[in-house]
Amino acid sequence: MFNYSMAESVIEIKNVNKFFGDLKAVDNISLTINKGNLFGLLGPNGSGKTTTVKMLTGQIKPSSGEMNVLGVDVLKDPIKVRELVGIIPELESPPSFLTGEEYLNFVASIRKIENPEKKINEWFNFLEFGNERKVLCKDLSRGTRQKLMFAQAFLHEPAIAFIDEPLINLDPIMQYKVKNFLKDYISKGNTIFLTTHVLEFAESVCTNLAIIHHGRLLYAGNMKDIKKKKISLEKFFLEKVKN
């Protein structure tokens, strides 16, 4: 556990379990994440990462346990949590029959952002897909849709962003941009919770990380401690998961 006495915790997970039928997808997880951190949740396929993100953002209900995000009890007020945070889901795509530009306006209208045009334009410029703003989402490439999901999640400059696999389908130029964006974003006092399979990426951006396997938390600590061990994150990960 990484509790700095000075730091302010923004995500708290206490003894959370999730069953799907008789499958235990998340097994008694407890975690605390502090403000200003870039937290990476790592784990093999099917280890419970997406399930954890969905529970934290009130999209599915945990079987037992408590969760608190930005001081809001997730079980009591999931909508409030989703108002405060931004989410890039693992699978969902933007709706087929809106254009990218319309989709961002749609999200802005749901999130009650006044005069979103300027921000929307900034995102089109930053991720370099402004020339496709008038194309229906169903006709966009996978990567462009992912850019749209990125913009959607950050439009209201949330204090916490949950990102389930940020790099998926993005080209190397975009990966580089996104990496710097995320580092910059937490330096402003925001927090990011991401899951990823790209360990090099995690190694270079995360300040803290946890490893989860078969729903159980195997490790939680900060990046510096792992670097002190003088082994790569890849090796560290493989060792943890093997045992």
Partner: peptide, 21 residues
């Protein structure tokens, strides 16, 4: 392949983003 932003026009009038959609 290109469509103008009708969503905003509809939404301005209907004040409901879901109905506009």
């Amino acid at each position: 392949r290109m469509f103008n932003n009708w969503f905003n026009n509809f939404n301005k009038f209907l004040k409901n983003s879901f109905v506009s959609k």
